[in-house]
């Protein structure tokens, strides 16, 4: 057992945990913070995305012991006094969720994007969400929601998929 101290959504917890305990299971099974779901075992789906010291991380691919001394923000820590954040509101208004299982991860990934790039294009949004799978929405309304939360309307220009969120020129897709 390893002793850890983790601040989750503003509350500090101390626990003795097995080193192999995944952060996602620590949140869900130990702390009862079930707002963060788990959707895969290969870090592909992103449903379990949280913020670890302010940066998005897939909590199924982080050991709880790695979060020792860190601050974790989950989807349950976003709304204050029942007031949804702009992103949560936008997901609601743009119908950016159906079954909702991917939604916590989508919101955390989108927060990460908007911190670094407050006015992304629609393709930058798609690119930033590449690590989060949704099976219901076809992503279009999720993209709309993120754009709306950034104060933009839907309908940005044609594809410019070769830019990373940082503005770095990269090649993500092969074009002739």
């Amino acid at each position: 057992m390893t002793h850890i101290t983790v601040n989750v959504d503003g509350t500090t917890y101390e626990d003795d945990v097995e080193p192999r305990l995944l952060l996602a299971h620590y949140l869900r099974d130990r702390l009862g913070l079930t707002g963060t779901p788990i959707g895969c075992d290969t870090s592909n789906c992103g449903a379990c995305t949280v913020e670890l010291d302010g940066a998005s991380a897939k909590s199924c691919s982080v050991l709880a012991v790695q979060a020792d001394g860190c601050a974790v923000t989950t989807v349950q820590g976003l709304a204050r006094n029942g007031e949804l954040t702009a992103l949560q509101r936008a997901f609601h208004e743009q119908h950016g969720l159906q079954c909702g299982y991917c939604t916590p991860g989508m919101i955390m990934a989108a927060r990460d994007l908007l911190r670094e790039n407050p006015h992304p294009t629609s393709d930058e949004v798609r690119h930033a969400l590449e690590g989060n799978l949704c099976r219901c929405t076809g992503y279009q309304n999720i993209v709309r929601a993120v754009l709306a939360a950034s104060g933009q309307q839907d309908g940005s220009g044609p594809a410019d998929r070769t830019r990373d969120a940082s503005g770095q020129q990269v090649t993500e897709e092969v074009t002739a």
């Binding site: 870090s43 992103g46 995305t49 670890l52 940066a55 998005s56 991380a57 897939k58 691919s61 982080v62 990934a109 990460d112 994007l113 930033a128 590449e130 690590g131 989060n132 990373d164 969120a165 940082s166 770095q168 990269v170 090649t171 993500e172």
Partner: peptide, 12 residues
């Protein structure tokens, strides 16, 4: 490196 995995994985 910008093509590796996704933003959350690139953070860690």
């Amino acid at each position: 490196t910008a093509t590796v995995a996704d933003p959350a994985v690139r953070h860690r």
